[in-house]
Nucleic acid binder design. Sequence first.
DNA 1: GTGCTTGTTGGCCA
DNA 2: GTGGCCAACAAGCA
Length: 279
Amino acid sequence: MPELAEVEFFRKRWDLAGAGQRVLKVELHPGAKIFRGADPAAIRHALTGAKLVSSEARAKQMLFHFSGDAWLGVHLGMSGELRVEPSNYAPRKHDHLALEMKRQVLVFNDPRMFGRVQFHHGKQPPRWWTHIAPAILSKDFTAAVVAAFLQRRGRAPIKAVLLMQERFPGVGNWMADEILWRAAIHPRRAAGSLDPAEIRSLWRECRKVCRLALNAIAGRGRQLPKDLNVNIPTTWLFRHRWEAGGRDPLSGALLMRAEIGGRTTCWSPARQRLPGNDG
DNA sequence: GTGCTTGTTGGCCA
DNA sequence: GTGGCCAACAAGCA
């Protein structure tokens, strides 16, 4: 599930319950793959007794800052989620990390274990955090920066390029499709083939989709509707992309699906044209 | 059983 | 060295 907005939702969920609270006990399974590259014993040692000071989400990553110069990074991968449970909760399968506080427990669960926990000790946040590309909603994400990147990745399909975190931090499979649909650009177009007007449109829709997704999904971190449809308008591709016989909400055309850039991609052949081809 | 899945990475090749 | 492609990672669901 987790792309930009969902990640922000999960960060808020932990933050609302845990900010200012002290970790009394750390439960973790050292063998879990989510700890690859990190030292579970060091995490346990540093976080036990530490207070959650603040947190931040960038792209698909989260950073939780604890007292004692301890920083916990979380990436949810494909199937990870953060939960808040009461103290007497029954642990579930794939609960890999639990931070027990006075009243509640912060839990990281991830069945597929593509997610990851990172740990850093120091006055300043770690490099793997500060080196995340400038946010799409920041001033540094300009149309010129996008244009230069599309030029460099000129022969790759634009769909694949939108998934590159080094330039489009936080964009995942459904956001990429939503952006291309709104910008009326076929996902198979070579990135270098976009004209200036298309690049500008792409840039604008990147920002819009990020902003709207954050508003619709991240909320206050309390309730993520089981069905995201509750908060996403029917005018979005998102509402129709998985339906059998799903239709473009603007033109009514039947949506197409194919693997592009290694990922299942959905587009509207009526709205997103491929030169010299019908779709 | 088959064939999917909102992500990332490393190896191969041009 | 750079860019593009793809298999692999692993578990659950229909």
